[in-house]
């Protein structure tokens, strides 16, 4: 509830420095991008205003666009689906492990490592057996040669291999966030519930889940942002290839703006990202309002 009546000047002191910086360096560039989306421009010289032609091409004539959107959204779905699992793990950690903090810290390691490291590591895992790839090496030694794949270069499965790396890397991240939420619930509440006969998963159903909803929301939002911006990992591992098979909206945007030198078109893709972001923000607020109302 907003209760403090303060003079306008105070509001200005609190909000303006941050807002100004944000508006100048994030918001205005976004608006510039929206405008650039209406141009036929190579990013260097000679821009032509072409109205909505870029959007028309993007939505109706571009064979790469919709698959990229699908991959991006699927990325988001997988990333978000990981969070309930992290929550379960956090609950188990809290219940069974005495020095859980240390474990959580260890699980967090992949998050702080550079994508360059992660990319190189997983490449050596996914490589063909002839290049020392781990998975294929193991499959071969188990005489499951027919199961071997050239994991990140087969168009049909490459993207899923990338999803997996991302899930692995950010597992510790969401676990940490969920763990802090779970650990924060006062133990008295569980003790009281125990007297009422609620124990184990029953207690989770009625106590833990409702209590961690706000934290859960943070994780969901972070996961969604992470997947919309998924760029570095893909660039390091496949570069969006083979033949655009692992292209997401943001890698495709890079490809168009800087490699194909169709900056206007790249901006149209950026605009599309902004729209998805808007829709998602509205959606997530709506969903969580309902959940919060339901549980409290």
């Amino acid at each position: 509830m907003n209760v403090l009546k303060v003079p306008a000047r105070t509001i200005a002191v609190f909000v303006l420095p941050c807002l100004l910086l944000y508006v100048c360096l994030v918001f205005i560039p976004i608006l510039v991008s929206l405008y650039s989306a209406l141009l036929d421009w190579n990013g260097i010289s000679g821009a032509n205003f072409i109205g909505l032609a870029n959007f028309k091409t993007m939505l109706f004539d571009d064979p790469v666009f919709w698959p990229s959107v699908r991959r991006t959204l699927l990325y988001a779905v997988f990333s978000m689906a990981e969070i309930p699992i992290c929550l379960m793990m956090a609950i188990l950690l809290n219940r069974y492990v005495k020095r859980a903090n240390t474990l959580v810290s260890i699980y967090f390691i992949p998050v702080i490592l550079s994508v360059v490291i992660i990319g190189q590591l997983w490449k050596t895992i996914y490589n063909p057996a002839s290049m020392g790839g781990m998975i294929n090496g193991i499959l071969n030694s188990l005489h499951l040669t027919s199961w071997t794949h050239s994991w990140i270069t087969e168009p049909k499965i490459a993207m899923f291999c990338l999803y997996f790396v991302s899930l692995w890397q950010y597992f510790g991240y969401h676990l940490l966030i969920q763990f802090t939420g779970v650990q924060n619930i006062p133990s008295e509440i569980y003790e009281a519930a125990k007297i009422d006969g609620a124990d184990g998963f029953k207690a989770d159903r009625y106590i833990t889940f409702p209590m961690v909803v706000p934290i859960f929301k943070i994780s969901i939002v972070l996961a969604f942002i992470g997947s919309l911006q998924a760029f570095d990992l893909i660039m390091v591992m496949t570069g969006g290839g083979p033949a655009n098979a692992t292209e997401t909206i943001s890698t495709y945007m890079y490809n168009m703006s800087f490699l194909s030198m169709k900056y206007g078109y790249g901006s149209a893709l950026a605009t599309f990202l902004v729209v998805i972001c808007l829709v998602f923000t509205v959606m997530i607020n709506f969903v969580f309002k309902r959940i919060e109302n339901k549980v409290s």
């Binding site: 944000y22 976004i30 991008s33 919309l228 760029f231 943001s250 790249g266 972001c277």
Partner: peptide, 11 residues
């Protein structure tokens, strides 16, 4: 909130 999901490359 609008700016939360903008990839750096776009700007």
């Amino acid at each position: 909130l609008l700016g939360m999901m903008i990839p750096l490359q776009a700007t």
